[in-house]
């Protein structure tokens, strides 16, 4: 297999992240940015983008391993729908509060859905399949309720929540961003320390069992940690697609699937990718701003397909 050897993937990723951070501070709507603009607007936003990108990529990577399914992503478990529902209801009712600088209503919504999912995982005999189905079902339920609410809500409320649903980092404040970044790093780190359990899951549940791992315990732990991580990301940024699906696959192409190497690489590339995408979404059509979720999907989808197809061809030869 063609792989990057040694530390090249990390070095390139860190360089890309640094470049993205630099550009994110440099570029923007104002041509001559004052110190205030940079420290009060662009810096918090770049930090939040890094945190959310990191969290989405790491949770995507973990969920793909947990369900031994390469199609899983952070939104597969439906937690983002809970956040969306919380936000939309909050906006419509005019209830707004913040939790460590994040959209509080979104966080509450995400956690309610996460608790439902966790309760299902506690039930004896619940398999990965049941969990996955519950997640998908919660997702559909949440987005249907969002649609229902929007039908009855007034237009101004809908406008506000629409941009949030497509991913929106503009609400970043320095305190909240730093707090999110710290929590994301802690949660990602604690997921990383479980690399042995994640590796064992790569060959499926039965193989993990015969390797001497208790699947029931791992499942609960990973559901809990990823729910918190996804809830945190979604509350900070709205729904941003593709990073959580794309970055882990991209990272696996570089270092393979063993999680000791893979999880940190996902973290670095996730942070770099979203910081870069957010910088582009702000500066490409200035003074207009694209929702960053649109940006990641428009660039991400074709790029992802190209990388995957090109690699398939290479491997087939």
């Amino acid at each position: 297999m063609n792989r990057l050897t040694g530390y090249r993937g990390y070095v390139v990723g860190l360089a890309f992240w640094a470049l993205a951070l630099f550009l994110a501070l440099e570029m923007g709507a104002a041509d001559h940015a004052t110190v205030d603009i940079i420290t009060k607007l662009r810096l918090p936003r770049a930090l939040l983008a890094s945190a959310v990108g990191m969290g989405l990529a790491v949770s995507g990577c973990v969920l793909q391993a947990l369900f031994a399914n390469p199609l899983c992503e952070p939104y597969t478990l439906g937690i983002s729908s809970g956040a969306a529902l919380g936000t939309v209801i909050g906006m419509a009712l005019g209830v707004q509060f913040s939790f460590i600088g994040l959209a509080g209503t979104a966080f509450v919504g995400a956690m309610i859905f996460a608790v439902i999912l966790f309760l299902v995982s506690l039930k004896q005999g619940s398999s990965n399949l049941i969990l996955l189905l519950t997640g998908v079902m919660l997702g559909v339920l949440g987005s249907s309720l969002v649609a229902l609410w929007m039908t009855f809500a007034d237009l101004n409320g809908v406008q506000g929540s629409l941009s949030w649903l497509l991913g929106d980092l503009s609400s970043a404040r320095i305190g909240g961003s730093l707090m999110t970044l710290i929590l994301v790093v802690i949660l990602s780190g604690s997921l990383w320390f479980h690399w042995r359990e994640l590796d064992a899951l790569l060959l499926g549940e039965e193989a993990a069992r015969s390797l001497g791992f208790s699947i029931e315990g791992s499942r609960r732990k990973f559901i809990l940690l990823t729910s918190l991580l996804v809830g945190l990301c979604v509350s900070g940024s709205g729904i941003i697609g593709f990073v959580g699906l794309m970055v882990p696959h991209f990272a696996r192409k570089m270092v393979g699937s063993l999680h000791l190497k893979l999880v940190p690489l996902c973290a670095i590339w996730g942070a770099a990718t979203l910081t870069f995408a957010d910088m582009m979404s702000r500066s490409l059509f200035k003074p207009f701003e694209l929702p960053v979720g649109v940006m990641t999907a428009v660039i991400g989808a074709p790029l992802f397909m190209w990388i995957m197809l090109r690699n398939e061809k290479k491997e087939a030869q």
Binding site: A68, P70, A200, L202, L203, A207, G212, S257
Partner: peptide, 21 residues
């Protein structure tokens, strides 16, 4: 098991190394 599930890129060496977990 009758089959080795292979959903993710792993070399044969890495797959065997999982036994050491």
């Amino acid at each position: 098991a009758p089959e080795l599930r292979a959903e993710f890129p792993l070399t044969a060496f890495e797959a065997v190394s999982l036994g050491r977990l």
